[in-house]
Design a protein around this nucleic acid. Sequence first.
RNA 1: AGGUCUGUAGCUCAGUUGGUUAGAGCAUCGCUCUGAUAAGGCGGGGGUCGGCAGUUCAAGUCUGCCCAGGCCUACCA
Length: 1152
Amino acid sequence: MFRNLDKSQSFPEMEERILNLWEKDQSFRKSVTARPADKGFVFNDGPPFATGLPHYGHLLAGTIKDIVPRYWTMKGFRVERRFGWDCHGLPIENLIQDKLGLHTVRDINEYGVGKFNEACRAGVLTYTREWRKTVSRMGRWVDFDNEYKTMDLSFMESVWWVFQQCFDKGLIYQGYRIQPYSPALATSLSNFEVNQGYKDRQDPSVTLTFPLEPVASHAVAPGAATGTKTSPAVDGGAATQGSGPSTAGSQHSAETHGSGSATHSGSSADGDELLMVWTTTPWTLPGNMAIALHPDLDYVLIRHDGKKYWIAEARRAAYFKDGEFELIDTKKGKDLAGRRYKPLFQYMPYMTDKQYTILMADFVSADDGAGAVHIAPSFGEEDFQLGQKEGLGLFDPLDAEGKFTHLVPEWQGVGAKDADKGILHHLKAQGRVFKHETFVHSYPHCWRTDVPLLYRAQKNWFLNLEKEITNKPDDGSAPQTKTLKQWMIDCNQQINWVPDHIKGGRFGKWLEGARDWNLSRNRFWGTCIPVWIADDGDMLCVGGVAELEALSGKRVDDLHKHIVDELVIKTHDKKTFAADGKEYRRTPEVLDCWFESGSMPYAQPHYPFENKEWFTNNFPADFIAEGLDQTRGWFYTLTVLGAALFQKPAFKNVIVNGIILAEDGQKMSKRLRNYPDPNELINRTSADAIRLFMIDSAAVKAEELKFSETGVKNITRAVLLPLWNSLSLFVTYANADAGKGQLTWRPGDAVQSKNELDRWILSDLQGLLRKVETEMDAYRLYNVVPAVVEFIDDLTNWYIRRSRRRFWKSEDDQDKNFAYATLYQVLVDFSKVLAPFLPFLAEELYQILVREFFARESFAREPGASGFAGSPIGQVDVPVSVHDERKHVSVHLCDFPTFDPKAFDAELNAKMARVREAVNLGRSLRSLHNIKNRQPLREMVVVVRSQAQKSEMESMEDLLREELNVKAVKVSLDESSLVTYKGKANFKSLGARLGKAMKAVAEKVGRLSHEDIKSLLAGQTLQLEEGVLTAEDVLVVRDVRQGLVVEASPNLTVALDTSIDHALRLEMLARETVSKIQNLRKDGGLEVSDQVEVRVKTVSPAFREAVETHISYISAEVLASSLDFSDAISEDESNSLDVGGEIAVFSVAKKV
RNA sequence: AGGUCUGUAGCUCAGUUGGUUAGAGCAUCGCUCUGAUAAGGCGGGGGUCGGCAGUUCAAGUCUGCCCAGGCCUACCA
């Protein structure tokens, strides 16, 4: 006996039950430990932030992260899955800041870093319970009990080790980078924060003029003109290299103001040339150090209003109308290189000969402005790069709050942006402003305080991607030396990306353009940069707790900032062991928390402090799955550190999922409420359906998915319900037949059916299996659902449809045994195939068909219990604890079925496909000619294309007769009487051969006669001017001959004889009668096996004759013990039948 | 602004090394079947394959430019 299915049960309820079962049985743990420890499949889970609730994006990624490990578990691998939590970083710091009312970095420092950090620690896991609930409810098996957290001591210790590895390889350095800086918060911001604050603002748009020094003096004796300044330049340059602009500034403030008119003395004929320069940030002008031109752009010197201006030729028209100027000279940018100009201000120390000269830069364009760029290396990315290249040094006259310092006395104490006006006013007075406008552009603002950001050079810790690394191949091959970046690019080539285009596209391009990674953040709650620095600049990098304890002499059980900042390392002379007085203090920054995420493969197993051997065998990971937004995030940081430490990729396979949008195509938004709450939807529809819906979409190949509830419902209808109905049919009949006890088949018996239909569905299942294996091995999840849907269609709409009578009223017990054995086998195997995708429904199938059944069997074998055959119909209540030890407790502990070539029969599949095509053509014919299926027809003709197909089709004659309700099937090879042939050129075969003659031949082929094509089909050839035609070169088009009921496809031609005589009409009425009585049985709530007494009232002679003629057929079909005519039947809408005006009224009563 | 992905039926998407009647599912309309009933089947309508140019005997498919949308990146002065 199988458990009788509860018709009113919902899928979500079933899922809840399965969750309890898994919990009770410890199925997840068993599924892991049942597989050998030395056959691991490593899955790494990217840790989410628990500062918010899980949304559909997480559910999608979570589903992928569940399906793939479940699949490989069933393939025999041990797949450990530990959940992880990302604990550090700005999201939690911001939350806590809001909670505590701390607005700025200064506020936090005053509040106390220790208290602040402890508040972060206490608040970071707020939503973990909700996460666990939702993730589990979706059916995801992941270990929450052994979760890892990035704030764990062991995790942070491994991160230190990773940092130390990089440090020891010389990859870590300190340097400047231009960063967005919030003057209000006195801190630099991350890109993420910057992107939140873009908005339009008005800024000045100013064109300035810079007088050039005479070319002669410069060209003849460049040293002479500037000779007096050579020595301070060297000093200044050296100073700025190491310790920044402020010290340099204070040393030179007085003596360097002289460049103006004094050096401009030799005002020659050319001395009045003015270079036009455009800027939108006047506040950066006190930091101007040079002007950049593009070497290959043309610049023109023109005279206007008595003055001479240099401007990019392409920009000239934007400033000077035709006819209002006189062209004096044209030069390439490179011909102006090195010329000196008169600076606007004299605040800056003199640091290098290149200061206040024209430099060459490729980034200069003539798209707008004047084709000349003002360079302030402290205040712009490109300015900084150029400054580095040319050795300009830095000059940043702003304090921590973005206000000018004493270095710029006129505006001392004024905020940078606020100084724009004053600076412009000053320059106008000096006659240096050619044009002053205002324009609106998108500019980033501080997302917390709304003030415009400044871009300025900040000192940071970097990972050097250009540093060379030599690997240590473990396969004995020769070591190779490449830059870290090149290693990253090479490692990427070894990764299997799904979809493939990410490898060379988005990710590959990003790698090629990658720049040194800024690792430091001036924040509080994170893993600290483990570098201690002495007053003389000497650095110690600490790589673990034991090391820190040894160096500091203190016990350490937490590595957070407020703890380790207190630890001062005092060193000793290596010879005398006397304290040498050097004190090392930790550099204040914490690490970018992406560094922690990228360290996850090492930090989760606490490598190398623990699990050393395991790690050696299990790196890189086999599989990860994350969203497209991780290209610059986790995918990148994993790759950088994998390449830096081991010159290997950190993962072998990755599935990249796309963004989930709301049904309306908009982003999902809590405010707009344009999507259903995930938990509510799961409880309304089912996790299985949601899983399958998400997997059956482009979202598993990095494209976006419009989440639609209709889509989820469609999955329920296309997959869950048909499967459930199939199970229901099987259980219903198996239980009914079990009560009768005449069948020899028992669940678990091998299928030995000779029935072609049985062999076909088993073969078809093998085809599915092979497809699923192929796609899963390639991580193409999106190809699985279509194959599953197709199989379900084969199963329900052909196998079960065709087999229904075999279960229902087969007189052949042997064939019935075959049918049960086959359907049982198919359902059990199918449940295993579906298990990774539909973990709940697959489990329910398995529990009902296998585990519960065998539990009852063994229960029934106990004294006093009855066996399978003798059990009463109905559910036998067996405690779950009683089960057959030979059977796995869960489908997820089973092995994934392996493809069996012996059971796969491609020819049989093709044959069945042809028969189904014949049936479809026949159905189509009936439909087109308005002939109901219940009307039997005399004959159908099937024309096939080969002798082999003829005998094949003949062997399926019974099936065709039954399916199409025809009395006889004639299979033929000659269709001449049914269709006429026309030809169409086969471009594929002819095109390559004929080339340009193609068009002419195509036309000739179109004009070929019926006979021409017939002879081609018979194997002859046709001679044309352009060449010889064979059957292959012509696609045959079949035109149905007038007046015939014929349908043709390339493979088959089907004709129906539609003449209906009296006998056929009676048969039709008999079938209508059966159908009507069956419906009345159903409406009357009768059991499938109930006997009935039927009475009929009719005045129609045709009906009377039909019932009398086919009384035994009708009685047998409807299980009627009696069938009588009677006039004493009260008629209503429901019990009367009207076929073409012939009317009958029925009464159906259960036989007592 | 740059990079990248996407654009095919009302909707969601397939579409092989270029080959001539461009497919499927859903939706819709019509017909139909059924002791699997939260169903099932058959058929109809519905397309200038985002646009323009090019290569070719032949372009949804290849190339170039443009348009639209998404994502990532980005204050080019």
